[in-house]
Amino acid sequence: MKRIIWLAAGVALGVLAVRKVTEAQQTFGPQGLNRAVGSLADNVANFADAVRDGMHQRETDLRAALGVDR
């Protein structure tokens, strides 16, 4: 009985996910959705670059404060 309930829940979630994706695709259109995903990927990459730069700067500051040379 538990398996049937979990199966029904999984099917329901799958149907909801497909409806949301279809709705978003109709709202943005095929090219708009691609642009939105591409923009999101660019933003994530830019954020990762900023974090890496900050980590490098902080490491340099710590090394200078401790007097440790590379």
Rank of each mutant, 00 (worst) to 15 (best):
D53R: 05
D61T: 08
K2D: 10
V37T: 02
Q25S: 12
L16C: 03
N43M: 12
A50V: 11
H56M: 11
R70S: 10
A8S: 05
L40Y: 05
G10D: 02
A48I: 06
V21A: 14
N46M: 09
R58K: 15
A24M: 13
A45P: 00
A17V: 05
A41Q: 13
A24D: 11
V68Y: 01
K2Y: 08
L7H: 09
V15F: 11
V18G: 03
D42T: 10
T60W: 03
L16V: 04
A36D: 04
E59H: 13
F28D: 02
I4F: 06
R58S: 14
L62D: 04
L7E: 08
W6Y: 12
A17F: 07
Q31F: 10
G54W: 02
K20T: 15
G14K: 01
Q25N: 14
V18W: 03
V44P: 01
Q25M: 15
R3F: 11
R63P: 00
R70V: 11
R70W: 07
V21P: 01
D61A: 09
R19A: 15
Q57S: 13
G54T: 00
A8C: 04
K2R: 12
L40D: 05
V11M: 03
F47N: 06
A24T: 13
V11N: 00
R19E: 11
G10S: 01
N46S: 12
K2C: 08
D49S: 14
V15M: 09
